[in-house]
């Protein structure tokens, strides 16, 4: 492994080790909800970060960082952000330590959001593979991923959403993915789910399935970006090229089958890694 130049040791917080990056601690935004922006930067081989509870970042390996959620939630009204910046030629693998469980919070109907934005310089690569997110009954969840790639950068995002814990039907979710390459938008899509909405849980929505997974690849069309699709009793899935370099794979089915499909389609390190 290449030694890391600069950068704080694993497990230490940004405030201790990385004064260059300002820390935005979680702050209350009313009703007990939290607004927090965490930042992560890998430039010139130097990894710096700023946690913002409830988002705590931990370096867990060479070019690898885990998100550790603290304090439970997210809860309705929470507005969380994670901003990632990769310098030219840098590679970063980003994970989460555990499944995210979105709860309704005190104020039913309030939406919790988590916006991940990534700015990727020429030749850099990001692999973002969080653990599944469970949207509990009565919760409303708006996650988003926005990728801005310079020409020659690459990114992969592997995500799984689950409607409800066992015995629940699940809450509402609008998951947005946006990607631009060299300033040109090539993807802007929002997947709408609602376990309590007859239309969205019906055949025009998920077809009764409780889990939806996706593998987004941007910046290359050499890595499993051709059209493909399949179905069995447990999962129905398709991969389709984007209107630019990249592809989006969507899988809908049982939680276990979607997870298995994602492991197959987005599990191993991509060849460009």
């Amino acid at each position: 492994m290449t030694p890391v130049v600069g950068g704080p040791a694993a497990g230490r917080s940004a405030a201790e080790s990385s004064p260059a990056v300002d820390t935005t601690a979680g702050s209350a935004v009313g009703g007990g909800a939290v607004e927090a922006t965490a930042r992560l930067r890998l430039v010139d081989g130097r990894l710096t970060w700023a946690s913002a509870p409830p988002i705590v970042l931990r370096r867990t390996g060479h070019r690898r960082v885990h998100l550790v959620a603290v304090g439970g939630g997210p809860l309705g009204g929470d507005r969380l952000r994670l901003e990632v910046e990769l310098g030219p030629g840098e590679r970063l693998s980003l994970h989460s330590a555990a499944a995210t469980v979105v709860q309704p919070g005190r104020d039913p109907g309030r939406t919790a959001s988590m916006a991940v934005t990534a700015s990727l310089a020429t030749g850099s690569a990001l692999d973002w593979r969080p653990e599944p997110t469970v949207v509990c009954d009565a919760a409303a969840w708006e996650p988003s991923v926005r990728l801005d790639l310079a020409d020659g950068a690459r990114a992969r995002v592997v995500e799984q959403l689950v409607l409800g814990r066992s015995g629940q039907v699940g809450g509402r979710c609008a998951s947005t993915m946006r990607a631009a390459v060299g300033g040109t938008p090539i993807l802007a899509t929002t997947t709408v789910l609602d376990g309590a909405d007859a239309a969205l849980i019906g055949l025009g929505g998920t077809g009764g399935a409780r889990s939806v997974g996706s593998v987004l690849v941007v910046g290359t069309d050499s890595d499993r970006c051709d059209e493909d699709a399949g179905e069995d009793g447990e999962v129905t899935w398709a991969r389709s090229p984007l209107a630019g370099p990249g592809a989006l794979t969507t899988a809908v089915g049982s939680t276990r089958a979607v997870a298995a499909l994602l492991a197959r389609e987005g599990g191993a390190q991509p060849p460009w890694w």
Binding site: T176, T190, V192, L200, A229, E231, T236, T250
Partner: peptide
């Protein structure tokens, strides 16, 4: 055009690919 809305549901999108193939 960035202000145009985006929204989709998963099963019809997947079925569209299966149909085309």
């Amino acid at each position: 055009p960035d202000h145009l809305p985006s929204a989709t549901t998963p099963l019809p999108e997947v079925l569209a690919v299966l149909h085309a193939r």
